[in-house]
Design a protein around this nucleic acid. Structure first.
Length: 423
RNA sequence: GCCCCCAUGGUCUAGUGGCCCAGGACGCCUCCCUUUCAAGGAGGAGAUCGCGGGUUCGAAUCCCGCUGGGGGUACCA
């Protein structure tokens, strides 16, 4: 580890405009990885100098999202608005020493007429901005309240931030912040501007692109560890072939030097695939715990066990295995697709075979049903699908033997009877 | 308008002058397995490395121009 990377003080500074977006989540993750990797400090600061937007509910949503992602912080959350004292003090100082001046009630920073300001960006190298292209910008409103570009610079200085890691949308404003820091006579932090995240249409990621916020990802049944892994790979890669990283490995291997410069598109299909892999590797106890917590009920262990390898998200448990928990109506499309060409008769025969199974476990059910298949001389699915529709209401379910065994003899026979009558 | 950033298959990426007529992953297609759906296994299609000039014995890799995309330019953050 390079000396400069030891004990980094980083900050995640979202403006509370509502749900935490995926782009913000990635920024938070990268900052968190850097703090943990360097044995440093993660500061959480809420950029709430914009009155209206900064409601307590919005702030709560951000904290909630970070907690779900299991990204903890060491300091904060600080409210930028609450730091007004420091800001006003700094403004007064700049006005006093001529670095800023009052104009129509507002205060503007004096930008040198000539020369340049260079941003040293870890990811992009040196970026030179001509002062000629930057106007004297307002740092305080006429009511005295500070503006973003000013407050950020002051806060980063006051909080001793060593590395500012944020989205590329802040790059163009960096020279302004650098000028404030310089006017204040402070040392600038190291900057790293992350490439933005885009939607499938190439435009900036937004709600229009499906799951765009952390809370939506949670609702859709994604696992936080899978989301972390996927997000880490959106703009960063450790090598040519590693795709799966435990969080410990991410902490160990993540580095700003390997962050890419071009924008990335959030691909939910790949997240789904990755999430499925994490789902299958979850210990059964853990999978059960998460499903039960999500559904607000217990007793799901057995159902979770026979469904685990078939789910890509926690949300898929219900459509796949909900029938194990609660009887549900027949899906008419499934019904008409399966219950034809003598299916009714075969279902009746299956009922008979199951009635006699002893013991009524998955192995016993399999022997009985396969035996009947041989006896009838039909393709297995000619018998299994009608049974599946009868007990689950649909054509999709976990393994049929396991499902039947789990339901138990009485429940299974009742459902088959209901199906026989339904016809 | 002006300023800044970016540019490898549909997507995420590896690649920093020869090992690349470009590697991995998702997705897609085919086959296998198979009780459905997934999963898994084996193959396959898909990239003139945005375009045009250079530099060099040699360029995805360096330079210039262009085009395209994105961001900024507020008494928003």
């Amino acid at each position: 580890m390079a000396p400069s990377e030891s004990g980094m003080r980083v900050r995640f500074a979202p403006s509370p405009t509502g749900a935490l977006h995926i782009g913000g989540a990635r920024t938070a993750l990268y900052n968190w990885l850097l703090a943990r990797h360097s044995g440093g400090t993660m500061v959480l600061r809420i950029e709430d100098t914009d009155r209206e937007r900064s409601t307590p509910e919005n702030v709560a949503q951000i904290l909630d999202a970070l907690e779900w992602l299991e990204l903890d912080w060491d300091e904060g959350p600080h409210s930028q608005a609450a730091l007004g004292e420091r800001h006003r003090e700094a403004i007064a100082r700049l006005v006093a020493n001529g670095h800023a001046y009052e104009h129509e009630g507002a205060v503007r920073l004096r930008v040198p007429a000539g020369g340049t300001t260079t941003v040293h960006d870890v990811i992009r190298g040196e970026i030179v901005f001509e002062h000629a292209a930057i106007d004297d910008f307002v740092i305080a409103r006429s009511d005295g309240s500070p503006l973003y570009n000013f407050a950020v610079a002051v806060d980063d200085r006051d909080m001793g931030i060593t590395h500012v890691v944020r989205g590329e949308d802040h790059l163009s404003n960096t020279p302004r912040q650098l000028m404030v820091i310089k006017a204040l006579g402070a040392e600038p932090p190291v900057y790293a501007h992350l490439p933005l995240l885009h939607g499938p249409d190439g435009k900036k990621l937004s709600k229009r692109h499906g799951a765009a916020s952390v809370q939506e990802l949670r609702e859709q049944g994604y696992l936080p560890e899978a989301v972390r892994n996927y997000l880490a790979l959106l703009g960063w890669g450790a090598d040519a072939s590693t795709t799966f990283f435990t969080t410990e490995e991410l902490v160990e291997r993540f580095s700003l030097e390997r962050v890419s410069r071009s924008p990335a598109v959030f691909d939910e299909q790949k997240l789904r695939w990755m999430n499925g892999r994490y789902m299958r590797e979850l210990p059964l106890e853990e999978l059960t715990r998460r499903l039960e917590q999500r559904l607000g009920r217990g007793g799901l262990r057995a159902a979770a066990e026979i469904s685990q390898e078939k789910m890509q998200t926690l949300a898929e448990f219900e459509p796949l295995a909900g029938f194990l928990v609660e009887r549900r109506p027949f899906d008419e499309q499934a019904w008409s697709k399966v219950m034809k060409d003598g299916a009714h008769e075969r279902l009746a025969r299956a009922r008979g075979a199951l009635e006699a199974v002893e013991p009524f476990d998955s192995a016993g059910v399999e022997i009985a049903l396969r035996g009947l298949v041989d006896e009838l001389g039909v393709k297995p699915n000619k018998l299994f699908q009608p049974v599946r529709v009868a007990i689950s209401g649909s054509t999709i379910s976990p393994g049929i033997f396991e499902s039947v065994a789990l339901l138990g003899r009485d429940e299974t026979l009742e459902r088959i009877d209901a199906a026989l009558e339904h016809a």
